[in-house]
Write a protein that binds this DNA or RNA. Structure first.
Lengths: 114, 114
DNA sequence: AAATATCGCTTGCAATATCAAGCAATGATT
DNA sequence: AATCATTGCTTGATATTGCAAGCGATATTT
């Protein structure tokens, strides 16, 4: 997509992590992470995306797709997490924009009382 | 890993194709293809690899792996009907209170527009 | 045989990925 | 209040991707 930077920033902020924390974990400079999140990088390397995906707990494929790389043909049906019905089930389909707003809102409610 | 160029060249020669034929099909210059096959390129873009994988009839994942990119661990992450990883997986664990707030907020943003 | 086309290849060149070093603003500590 | 730490960010600098243009060598055509 075109503004995947916002999305990556939302992922970090949802976990309340600083650029320098991620820098240490991912071994990627905070300078570059900042550029990534502010949309100044067009095609970060798959290795970088992989590291971020592990830190943020999202799938590698998802980040590849967000950035605009071809992703391996994958098709699968609805799944739920262990046991209880996932929130995705109850929510139903949500758009990319809606997801971004939800992530930002989650960050908000998690930092609200501090 | 380090000799993936030879491998890519073998793929092309197995199909008796010239650099310029592949150039036209993949929309990648013969100059660059030559460098690719002679080991002068370290990390070709996933898009380039994807095009080559289609032309040579091998899997995209295989070429990604040969080049040394992290390969998508086809795991058991939560997928929705669209094939995209569900938001629940991306967010990680959320409490019941958080889920309720998110659902309410989603309702809000959906009634807000137009 | 001469002219022409095609082959793989090399060489600058522009665009990009990524980093180290530093900056101003804000937060914490004394 | 003054000092120190931390935050996100900007700015060169370096390495790499990928291309356009050309090269010599080998076919193919006239």
């Amino acid at each position: 997509m075109q503004h995947y930077g916002e999305y990556i920033r939302a992922l970090r902020e949802a976990k309340n992590m600083t650029l320098r924390e991620v820098e240490k974990l991912a071994d990627v400079s905070n300078a570059y992470l900042s550029q990534l999140e502010s949309g100044k990088v067009k095609q970060p390397s798959p290795l970088t995306l992989h590291k971020l995906s592990e830190i943020y707990g999202v799938s590698y494929d998802l980040l590849m797709e967000k950035v605009g790389y071809p992703t391996p043909e994958r098709k699968e049906n609805v799944k739920s997490e262990s046991g209880k019905t996932s929130i995705a089930y109850r929510i139903g389909h949500i758009s990319d924009d809606e997801e971004l707003e939800l992530l930002n809102y989650l960050k908000f409610i998690r930092t609200r009382k501090k």
